[in-house]
């Protein structure tokens, strides 16, 4: 436990020094706030765009607050995940390439505390960034569109944090066996996309897939309930996260012993 907290503090320090604790939350906040604002002003923007033929009538219903908040999650599904993966793709491979990792494991340090600290720092940064952006989107959707039920919004946020944790764990696992940062980012995002597409195409076979977490979060925000199997998805997602962590520990320990 002492080793873990030491490594965790070291990761936090590194993330602060590389400005990650500043720019990742700010970018999340910007994208979260921009979505409701641009939807709110969309009719005006189109009206002033100018190159419409005379007499064009565009009728876009202004979305309700919950709808807008759910759309923001859709935004985070693409750009948010991209930014998180880009920010943290080097978290393990950079240390391996610079040789720091070999120097660390010269001493009797448990692989679990090392990997666990990396994992916790990924979750801390992505969770905090997401919650800041979500709060911004919530505020604007609430005041520009319509009020959002608090309980449903919090449930949606928790589910989405779990989805981001799953992606963070996948990133850590992928970076345990790949060296190039670009390959790590590509594989992680590709994996997440393939999972989402497959569970959209084959809803019957992948009803419990972790990629349903983000869809379920959107459902919760809009309706307050979900049509999916909540328990099964939660259990499977947490299982996947644990499996990714164990896999990372296993690969790193094998690589260091050789």
């Amino acid at each position: 436990m002492r080793q873990w907290s030491l490594f965790f503090r070291k990761e936090m320090l590194e993330m602060t020094r590389s400005y990650k604790w500043l720019w990742v939350p700010i970018v999340f906040l910007l994208y979260g706030v921009m979505q409701p604002i641009s939807m709110y002003f969309l009719p005006d923007i189109l009206k002033h765009a100018g190159n419409m033929p005379e007499g064009t009538i565009i009728n876009i219903p202004t979305p309700t607050g919950p709808e807008e908040l759910a759309q923001t999650l859709g935004q985070y599904d693409t750009i948010g995940i991209l930014i998180l993966v880009l920010a943290m793709m080097g978290i393990l491979s950079a240390e391996r390439q610079s040789g720091v990792i070999s120097m660390i494991f010269v001493k009797p340090i448990s692989y679990l505390s090392y990997v666990g600290a990396k994992w916790a720092s990924i979750i801390a940064l992505s969770g905090a960034s997401f919650l800041i952006g979500y709060a911004g989107a919530w505020y604007y959707s609430h005041f520009l569109m319509s009020p959002i039920p608090v309980g449903a919004a919090i449930q949606g946020a928790l589910l989405y944090v779990l989805w981001l944790s799953f992606i963070g764990s996948l990133l850590l696992f992928v970076s345990s066996f790949l060296n190039s940062a670009a390959a790590i980012a590509f594989t992680t995002i590709g994996g997440a996309v393939i999972l989402s597409v497959l569970s959209g195409l084959l809803p019957r076979y992948l009803a419990w897939s972790p990629s349903n977490l983000s869809k379920m979060a959107m459902e919760f925000i809009q309706t307050g309930t979900t049509s999916m199997n909540l328990t099964a998805i939660l259990v499977l997602s947490i299982g996947c996260i644990v499996a990714c962590l164990c896999g990372t520990v296993l690969v790193i320990s094998r690589r260091q012993k050789v």
Binding site: S18, Y19, K20, W23, V27, L30, Y31, I83, L86, A87
Partner: peptide, 9 residues
């Protein structure tokens, strides 16, 4: 926004 992100990454 992406200019700053690209610089940091």
């Amino acid at each position: 926004i992406l200019g700053s992100v690209a610089y940091f990454v």
